[in-house]
């Protein structure tokens, strides 16, 4: 029996490409060159499935022009804003994505940012690499302890809940703010806050884990920052739009916020110049999920979904 044709738009982790080649006649992108909608169409002849990445826009015109053989689009991402779902539905093309498997890697990234910001790791690293380190001194680069402090989690979804168990190992008392309280068995001892008024003053460390969008746009603004304990630490591995950059920069300069660790930004990759100029920030380039383990898991999950659709089974990771 001939294998179905799978078009893979970009290079994927080796283990994932191996599985593509094992189960499909895989059309891989060995140079990892960026791909346009036209490139996809040019390579899609006879394909049963397309495995794409978030950088590619599969708008209505691309989807309408796909060959009739295409029955499923898999995206190597949780988000699917880049795919016109209505156009896919019209053509009877299923769309599958990679929910849930990124939670642990993203929570790890948040914990890294919390620790590195609180302990002034960026400054310490630069001091060592610069060759200017003059030796240990009792008052050098004193940071903020994490153990025994209060962690406030804004948005207690899967990632926030993963962070709770990590933070508890550090002896942190966990508080959280969300629209509704979790069932007690999922709280792991964390304290629910139904208002910013009670939540913000207990956040020695504030970690953001809410979704983006208009409802949360610039949630962390000057007014809310002012209600944090002085010298708080802020981490954001969720969405850049949650933070008003100008307000955060001003607070980092005044000492109201002692340090910040950021993996996401407004207008990526054009990070606010004021952030790049600060010493008391640790900045990462949106690496939330980029571990070998997670990228493999994302690839396996999207392939599971493609396999299921082509075999006429129910895919557990169908969009919509």
């Amino acid at each position: 029996m001939t294998k179905p044709i799978l078009l893979v738009t970009r290079r994927l982790p080796p283990a994932v490409e191996d599985r593509c080649a094992r189960d499909y006649e895989a059309r891989l992108n060995s140079t990892d060159a960026p791909v346009t909608g036209a490139d996809i169409l040019a390579r899609a002849e006879g394909a049963s499935a397309v495995l794409c990445c978030p950088a590619e826009r599969l708008d209505a015109s691309v989807i309408r022009a796909l060959p009739d053989t295409v029955r499923v689009i898999g995206t190597f991402s949780v988000g699917f804003d880049h795919i016109d779902l209505a156009a896919a539905r019209e053509r009877g093309i299923a769309v599958v994505h990679t929910p849930n498997v990124l939670s642990v890697a993203t929570a790890e990234c948040a914990m890294l940012l919390i620790l590195a910001a609180a302990r002034r790791a960026g400054e310490g690293e630069r001091l060592v690499r610069s060759g200017q380190w003059k030796g240990w001194a009792p008052t050098q680069l004193l940071g903020t302890g994490v153990s025994g402090r209060r962690l406030g989690i804004f948005g207690m979804g899967r990632i926030g809940r993963e962070l709770v168990s990590m933070a508890r190992g550090f002896g942190m008392a966990v508080h959280y703010r969300d629209q509704v309280r979790l069932p007690p068995e999922m709280e792991q001892g964390a304290t629910f806050h139904d208002s910013d008024d009670s939540f913000l003053p207990v956040c020695d460390v504030l970690s953001l884990h809410a979704p983006g969008g208009e409802a949360t746009r610039h949630w962390l603004n000057a007014e809310r920052i002012a209600r944090l304990p002085r010298g708080a630490v802020v981490a954001n591995a969720a969405r850049g739009t949650l933070i008003d950059d100008d307000a955060l920069i001003a607070a980092l300069q005044s000492g109201q916020v002692a340090a910040a660790g950021l993996d996401v930004y407004n207008n990526e990759p054009n990070v606010a110049p004021g952030l790049l100029a600060l010493e008391n920030v640790v900045l990462l380039p949106h690496l939330g999920s980029n571990t070998v383990e997670t990228r493999d898991a994302m690839g396996y999950l999207v392939l599971d979904g493609i396999d299921a659709v082509l075999a006429g089974r129910a895919a557990g990771n169908l969009v919509g």
């Binding site: 950088a55 990759p269 380039p285």
Partner: peptide, 19 residues
């Protein structure tokens, strides 16, 4: 990368860390 102004985009298998 950030100190250099983040002028690169990463593919799905670039700069992967260990979980």
């Amino acid at each position: 990368v950030m100190r250099a102004g983040w002028r690169r985009s990463f593919g799905m298998r670039d700069m992967l860390g260990i979980q």
